[in-house]
Nucleic acid binder design. Structure first.
Lengths: 332, 332
DNA sequence: TTGTAAGCGTTATCAA
DNA sequence: TTGATAACGCTTACAA
C-alpha cells in the first residue's frame, strides 16, 4: 500500500504538504503542488479513508434506511438520494429495515457502528413517540412518511393534500361510491392516517358520506395485499365505482385484483394511486396518481443532513414536498 | 465518544482484553468476559470501525455496483445481496454506474477510495475485454450479465437456456411468427447476444426461420423503449403472434405498447419476459417469464467475494444460476 | 510556505 | 489468561 509518506519522499516534501495538496488546502506553492500531484499520479496513491476518518471524525458516508430496497418507491428514492449525496461529495450506504420498528431502531443504532456522518431514515413502522437515541452524535433526517412532531428534521410527503386532490378528482369524474384501500391505522399521525384523512376531507367537501364497508385496512402495503383488497371489495357485493389506494404498489395489486374479478378500469371502477413510481405510466391501464416531487425531496433531505453535519444545532426544519396530480387512463 | 480504554478502565482490565471480548476471541476467562460485557453495556460502547479498519486493513463493506437502483431487477438483486452479506457480517454500499462503461470503471476505481473489501459488479456496458485495474487489491465478482471469459469470478444468468426455453414455450403454444425485442448487439458475448442466440436456437430446433423484420434492437432496455418497440412492430404491418422480450422491464413496455395499439395479450400476441421481477405477477395480463433464482445468485456472489477476501488466489469460479419458466396469463 | 510532533482508537506481537 | 507497547495512515496544532 502506498502512503502519504511514500508520496512525500517521492516529491521531496513532507507528509503534511502532501496532505494539503490532497485536500486542496491553500498555502501550497504552485510549483510544489505540481510536483506532489505528479508524485501521486506516478505512484498511484489513494488516500486511506479509514485513517482520515479516524483522525478527522468524518466518514463521508450518509446512511439511508428504507424498509425494502426492492419496492419501486424506495428504489426511486434511493436513486435520487445517491445522486444528490454524490453531488455534495458523500457516499450512501443503504440499510434495509424491513419496515418494522425494530429494524428502524437498529438502523439508528447501527449507523453508530458504521459511523455514518448522518442518517436519512424513511420510517414507516417507528412509533411517532420514539426519541432519537440520546447519544447518536450524528444528525437524523426523516424522509417521507411518519411524522415525529418536529423532533427531527423532516421532509414530508404531501400526504393529506395529495390524497384529497386525488379523491376530489374521482368525484369530479362522477364517482360517488369511493373505496379507500389503505394500511392499518395505528396511533398518532402517520402516512396511513394522514392519507385517509385527505380522503375523508374530500368526501366531506363534496357532500359525500364515507361508507365503512368501503374501507379496507391492509396489514401490509404490498401488491399482494392490494390484490386481496380488490377481491374483498368485489366479493362483498357492495357497489363501488372508485378506489383511492394508499400507494402505487397497492394500486397495482388492486388493478390486478379487479382484473381477476372481471371489473374494468376505468369503465366499471376508477382507480388512483400515490407516489408516481416509474411503473405507473406503464400499467394497463396506466395509473393516475399523486406525484410528489421525489428529486426535490431527496435534494432537501440530503441538504438537511449535510447542513446538520456542518452545523449540528438549531431548530428542526419541516418541509412538505410539492406534488402534482397525474391523470392517466385509470381515471379517464 | 466512548473508547475501549474507557471500557477497560470501567471493567478494571486492559484494552486488549476488551478487544478480545469484543471480537469473541478465545482465551478470556468467563468471569472477566462477563465483567467486560457488563461494562460495555453500561457505557454504551461501540467499536470504532475506522480504527479497526486502519489497524486490520478490512472495512467489512462490500460494494455493489449496479446500473440504476430504481430498476426493479436491480432493486431485487440489491435486496438479496444486502441480506446475504449481512448474514456473513458484511455491509453493502451501493454504487450507481448508469450502465455506461465509464461508470462501471469508476466503480472499480472508486471502491479503491472507499476501501471496500470486495466489489460485486453487475456490469452491462463494460467491454468484455476490459481487464481489472492491475492494483485493485480486492476481489471483484461479476454478477449477472456480461461475460468476461473467465477473467473474473462470475455468477451468470441462464441467458441462453432461459430464452431458449421461453421461445420453445411460445412455439408449443402455437406461435409461429415470434418477434424478439432485445438490446443493441455489441461485440463479444453479452446478455443481449446470448439471449438472442437462445431465441434463434429454439426457432431452429423447431424448424422455424427467424424473420429479420421481427427483430427489434433497442438502444436502451427500458419500459419506454419496449413500448416503442411494440408500436413499431404493430405499425410495420408484419404479422406476429409472439414476442420474446429481453427483460421483464422491456416486456412491461411491450405490454403497454401492444395495449396502445389495441392488440390483446395473449389472444392476439403472446408475450414472455426474463427476470421474474416482483411486478411480473401483477401486470395485466400477468407476465410469463424466465425466473432465475435470484436469491441463489446473490448468495453465490457474496460467497465468492467473501471467499476471495479470505483467500485471494486460485482459479476463477464460474456459475450459472438455475432457472424456472413461470407461465402466467401472457402465454395462456 | 513548509515541516515537526503528537495522537485519533484499534489490534498484533510479545512478554508477564 | 492477561497486559504493555507499538504500530496502522492521516490530520490538527504549532513551530520554523
Amino acid at each position: 500500500m502506498i502512503t502519504m509518506g511514500d508520496v512525500a519522499r517521492l516529491a521531496g516534501v513532507s507528509k503534511m504538504t502532501v496532505s494539503n495538496v490532497v485536500n486542496n488546502r491553500a498555502g501550497v506553492s504552485d510549483q510544489v503542488r505540481r510536483r506532489v500531484l505528479e508524485a501521486i499520479e506516478r505512484s498511484g496513491y489513494r488516500v486511506n479513508v479509514s485513517a482520515r476518518t479516524l483522525r478527522s471524525g468524518r466518514t463521508g458516508v450518509i446512511g439511508l434506511a428504507v424498509p425494502e430496497i426492492d419496492r419501486p418507491y424506495f428504489g426511486l428514492l434511493a436513486a435520487h438520494v445517491i445522486d444528490q449525496a454524490g453531488r455534495q461529495g458523500f457516499h450512501v450506504a443503504i440499510e434495509q429495515t424491513g419496515g418494522a420498528a425494530d429494524g428502524e431502531i437498529d438502523a439508528i443504532a447501527h449507523s453508530h457502528t458504521l459511523q455514518f456522518d448522518g442518517l436519512i431514515l424513511s420510517a414507516v413502522g417507528l412509533h411517532p413517540d420514539t426519541r432519537p437515541p440520546a447519544e447518536t452524535g450524528y444528525p437524523i433526517v426523516m424522509l417521507g412518511e411518519q411524522d415525529f412532531g418536529g423532533r427531527f428534521d423532516h421532509v414530508a410527503m404531501p400526504n393529506e393534500d395529495g390524497t384529497r386532490a386525488a379523491t376530489a378528482h374521482l368525484i369530479a369524474r362522477g364517482c360517488r361510491r369511493i373505496a379507500n384501500v389503505t394500511g392499518r391505522f395505528s396511533q398518532g399521525l402517520n402516512v396511513v392516517t394522514r392519507r385517509h384523512h385527505g380522503y375523508l376531507t374530500a368526501l366531506g367537501e363534496h357532500g359525500l358520506e364515507a361508507d365503512p364497508a368501503l374501507l379496507v385496512n391492509l396489514g401490509e402495503m404490498t401488491m399482494a395485499a392490494g390484490r386481496e383488497a380488490a377481491h374483498r371489495l368485489a366479493d362483498s357485493g357492495r357497489a363501488f365505482d372508485g378506489v383511492v389506494a394508499v400507494t402505487d404498489t397497492v394500486a397495482q395489486g388492486v388493478l390486478r385484483g379487479l382484473a381477476d374479478r372481471g371489473l374494468r378500469v376505468p369503465d366499471d371502477v376508477r382507480l388512483v394511486g400515490f407516489d408516481d413510481v416509474p411503473e405507473a405510466e406503464y400499467m394497463v391501464p396506466s395509473l393516475s396518481t399523486v406525484a410528489p416531487d421525489h428529486a426535490w425531496m431527496a435534494a432537501r433531505a440530503v441538504e438537511l443532513v449535510v447542513g446538520r453535519i456542518q452545523a449540528p444545532l438549531g431548530p428542526t426544519d419541516q418541509h412538505v414536498a410539492p406534488f402534482e396530480l397525474v391523470i392517466r387512463e385509470s381515471t379517464r
